[in-house]
Design a binder for these strands. Structure first.
Lengths: 188, 188
DNA sequence: AACGCCTTGTCAACGACGTTGACAGGTGTG
DNA sequence: CACACCTGTCAACGTCGTTGACAAGGCGTT
């Protein structure tokens, strides 16, 4: 039950977490077995469960646990749409994008889905709601979240093609304008 | 190998498909076992695999197989954004929306992901590409697909709340306008 | 009628999976 | 020393998707 923050077990625990993160991001949830994680970390499969409770909890903790604050929200509202797309497509954010895709794909499991929803709320939609002005800010923030989520979900499969045909800047222009339509205070 | 279109086996095959569809939509892919499908259909588990090859192929065939043509594309371009949202949120389309959600959640498996991508292409994005005018029609069609996909994915979790707070018409207005930003031919 | 073939279905089993319980070393505290 | 506890090991359980061998029944050909 108890898990000490320091001590001998903490190093093996982080070793398990590192192996798990690498395998989950590379192969996804279903294709990664607890036994494979244990083998990569050089420990017993039972120890993985002992430390993290279950495969699902391990996934949520290592893949869904490292959320940044969301600095992409800083800046003028007039260019928020562009910045959101730039941030979502930032090549340096490849790891986070793959982590998000892995979570969406594993959202067949209730715990993963709940974690995904909660993470989106706390690190994105709530901040966005506080930022927007005009009517229906909460609803518009949710819909902007749907837009960004749709882009991130589609990107692993269509992103390469889009980059080759129209280029990153054009995608940022186009999708940024679409998001901006929800950022700008609508009539009525 | 060979599967006759008619004959004694066709009825049990469709019985398996019916049970599988109901269970997959209700519980999702991972939580539905081949044995449960077989029990619901009153057949042997091995027979399920015999008829459909694998659990994944069965899922793709029964959940991803019944795609409509897409009449939502008919009509003037000026209101296409609205119509797409109306169609995506149509209460009568609850089954299709749940099927789509089930496929997204099961897209951890390669075959499911491929089927999802192909279905989106053939029944939506290709038709949309043919419809749009102006520059970058293919890219804009893909991005519109991302928008619609994001909305459909988010809807099961946030739709109820949005309906209660701002109402369906307002959502159609807002998100429809955002999609319309990609439908309308952009400046250069 | 007798034969062989294909389809349809049954049965037991395989290997892999996530998870659990009982148990062993190792360390610090009374 | 004895006690407790954290850390780790081991074998096993039940379930899973899938497979192979085999039986029952229809059907055309000789």
């Amino acid at each position: 039950m108890t898990i000490t923050a320091t001590g001998a077990g903490a190093t093996t625990r982080s070793a398990i977490a590192a192996s798990a993160l690498a395998l989950f991001e590379e192969r996804g949830f279903a294709a990664t077995s607890v036994r494979a994680i244990a083998a990569a970390a050089g420990v017993d499969p039972a120890l993985v469960i002992r430390h993290f409770g279950s495969k699902e909890q391990l996934f949520v903790e290592v893949v869904g646990g490292n959320r940044g604050a969301g600095p992409e929200l800083d800046g003028p509202l007039e260019t928020l749409g562009r910045r959101l797309v730039e941030h979502a497509l930032d090549p340096a954010r490849d790891r986070e994008r793959r982590a998000y895709a892995a979570m969406v794909r594993a959202s067949d499991h209730d715990g993963v889905r709940d974690s995904l929803r909660q993470a989106a709320r706390s690190t994105f939609i709530d901040g966005l709601t506080a930022l927007l002005t005009g009517p229906c800010v909460a609803a518009r923030a949710e819909l902007i979240g749907a837009q960004v989520g749709g882009l991130m979900q589609a990107w692993p499969t269509v992103g390469e093609e889009l980059l080759a045909t129209v280029g990153r800047e054009r995608v940022i222009d186009l999708y940024g304008a679409a998001i901006q339509a929800l950022v700008d205070s609508p009539a009525s």
